[in-house]
């Protein structure tokens, strides 16, 4: 068995450290070692996108990374999306207003992917939103509410900038 290694990274603004076997998946470390269970596991092979986080600001699958690879990185999970005072992020607010979630299981991954999408393309067309969100699977909503929400959030974020 490989020696446990130290890992330390910034997550949602706070530095967290731990010791882990090298094979431990980043998503397991985030959920089990750090207790941040908002990031979900849906397939463990990079297709469903439920585990999507922002890794150094960019959306990535946390089931396809080892925890040790996050050493020194900056990570944002769904728990870090709202403002410190609890004000929802425009995407969260728009998801709420547009009935963009039902069971809520894919929602964290969907939000993180949408964050990245709007960062690289602040005014996406509906087609671009659908293409961008095809990175995350949802089985409840038929995606319509999600697409509407991302569009609304994009409008709001642009007008507030």
């Amino acid at each position: 068995m490989a020696e446990p290694r130290k890992v330390s990274f910034k997550i949602n603004g706070a530095v967290r450290e731990g010791t882990t076997e090298p094979r431990k998946l980043l998503v397991d470390f985030i959920r089990d070692d750090l207790g941040l269970t908002g990031t979900h596991i849906g397939c463990e092979h990079g297709i469903c996108g439920a585990c999507t986080i922002l890794f150094n600001g960019e959306a990535a699958r946390s089931c396809l990374m080892l925890a040790v690879q996050a050493d020194g990185a900056e990570i944002t999970t769904v728990e870090g999306l709202a403002a410190p005072d609890g004000t929802l992020h425009p995407l969260q607010q728009a998801f709420w207003e547009h009935h963009a979630l039902q069971c809520g299981f894919c929602t964290p991954g969907m939000l993180m992917a949408a964050c990245d999408l709007l960062r690289v393309n602040p005014s996406p067309t509906e087609e671009e939103i659908r293409t961008g969100l095809s990175a995350v699977l949802c089985r409840c909503t038929g995606y319509q509410g999600i697409v509407d929400a991302v569009k609304a959030a994009a409008d709001r974020m642009r007008s507030s900038n």
Binding site: G46, T52, F55, A59, A60, A113, D116, G132, A135
Partner: peptide, 9 residues
């Protein structure tokens, strides 16, 4: 190639 979140890595 995949999706934006897979192209990140």
């Amino acid at each position: 190639v995949g999706h934006l979140p897979t192209r990140t890595r």
